[in-house]
Computed example of a mutant assay.
Amino acid sequence: MAFLSQEELIKIGFASIGENVHISDKASIYNPSKITIGSFVRIDDYCLLSAGEDGIEIGSYVHISCYACLIGQSKITVRDFVAISIKATILSSTSDFSGETLPLLNGVKLPGLDDDLFSVINKPVVLETHTGIGAHSIVFPGVTVGKGSAIGALSSVYEDVNEWGIYVGNPIRFLKKRSESAYNKMQEILKNIGG
């Protein structure tokens, strides 16, 4: 995996970017002026970051694995110490498939159809500190994944997730409590080094 140089990262035009950031030269980044990235962040091959008007905010100590996708008009917030696994998708926007309106066809204007016939759901998404999103999982608009929680592979997250749980399935269900042991050790280490 080849990563962009510091000079190449600066040229992209992020709103802000921290230290020790590694972004694959195969990642796709749209609207970078609306994206902030903390320090010690790794974004792997074929990831898609597409920021809407409200932007994407990525904290520090974050790993976004291959083929992951963060996209939408509303804000996506990824706090510190978050892992987003292979092919996971974080959506802050989606078409309304209720049948009351039609899915939005970006850039396609059909003659005779009013704009109010189309609808998009835009709601912010937050991945709190020390959370993990499993491979091939989807987090939908309006969801907050609570501090310390993990979402199992192939899961669909339609509603908020409480803190310190492990959740799996489609739709997700609580599996068991997640240990706080590693988080507490990390906090102690950071305190001792002044972080």
Rank of each mutant, 00 (worst) to 15 (best):
I17C: 11
G52E: 01
A88T: 08
G112I: 07
P111Y: 00
G132S: 14
Y46A: 10
I37L: 05
G72F: 07
E53N: 13
I12A: 06
V157D: 08
L154N: 15
T131N: 07
H130F: 15
V120S: 08
Q73L: 12
I37N: 01
I138D: 03
Y67K: 13
G148R: 00
D54N: 11
P141T: 06
S85A: 15
V78M: 02
D114H: 11
S65M: 11
N20W: 00
I35L: 11
Y183I: 15
F97E: 04
G195P: 03
L105G: 14
A182Q: 10
H130M: 04
Q6S: 15
D44N: 03
L91P: 11
D45E: 10
L127E: 03
I193D: 08
N20E: 05
A135F: 04
I172G: 12
D44K: 06
F3E: 03
G146D: 00
T101K: 04
I189C: 09
A51M: 04
V157A: 14
S16A: 10
P111H: 00
L127K: 00
I151Y: 05
R79A: 13
V125K: 00
A135H: 04
R178Y: 00
F14M: 02
G59V: 06
I138G: 10
A135S: 15
L117G: 14
T144L: 00
K26I: 02
E100V: 09
I172D: 09
V143H: 02
L102R: 02
G142P: 08
R42F: 11
G112V: 09
M1R: 01
F118K: 00
G38T: 03
V143Y: 00
Y61V: 09
V126R: 05
T131M: 03
G165N: 05
N170W: 01
V145E: 03
T77L: 08
L49F: 02
H136T: 12
V82T: 12
G13L: 00
L104D: 04
D80P: 07
S65T: 11
L175K: 06
A83H: 04
Y67I: 06
I23E: 00
L190G: 10
V125Y: 01
I12G: 04
